[in-house]
């Protein structure tokens, strides 16, 4: 199986994001072992050096840590940390774009919040 990566952005960033997603969604619980570089490389059919770069990005941010001779593990308490980081991005990434598009279509702020409430129910 191939899950294709977006070829217009550095793949190591996308690898880091996917690991973060797995941590948030709970499929990679804190203190659990992260798949090896080669497992990642084989799964996504990407260069192992690229995976390594993505993993190292998370090690630098202390989201993952290395146990010598065993592998990479998810650090304790990082789920909160990632969620905080994501919340900051959320405004930039979604709200700003959404409001701008809404303006273009003539949707008022009230209509917009109504839509959000509706979306919440589904």
């Amino acid at each position: 199986m191939t899950i294709s990566m977006d070829d217009s952005r550095p793949i190591f960033v996308q690898i880091a994001e996917r690991i973060e997603n797995d941590i948030i969604e709970g499929s990679l619980p804190e203190e659990s072992q992260v798949p090896s570089t080669n497992q990642f490389a084989a799964f996504y059919q990407i260069n192992p050096a690229t995976v390594m770069k993505g993993v190292n990005l998370l090690v630098d941010q202390e989201i993952l840590y290395k146990k010598r001779g065993i592998g990479m593990f998810v650090a304790s308490g990082v789920r909160e940390k990632i969620m905080e980081k994501r919340k900051e991005h959320f405004y930039e990434q979604y709200i700003v774009t959404m409001v701008r598009e809404a303006e273009k279509l003539g949707i008022t702020v009230d209509q917009l919040s109504e839509m959000i409430r509706r979306g919440d129910k589904t």
Partner: peptide, 12 residues
């Protein structure tokens, strides 16, 4: 796809 798999596997 088999080629990429085998190449990466053996390269690893």
């Amino acid at each position: 796809s088999l080629f990429y798999d085998k190449l990466l596997e053996d390269y690893a």
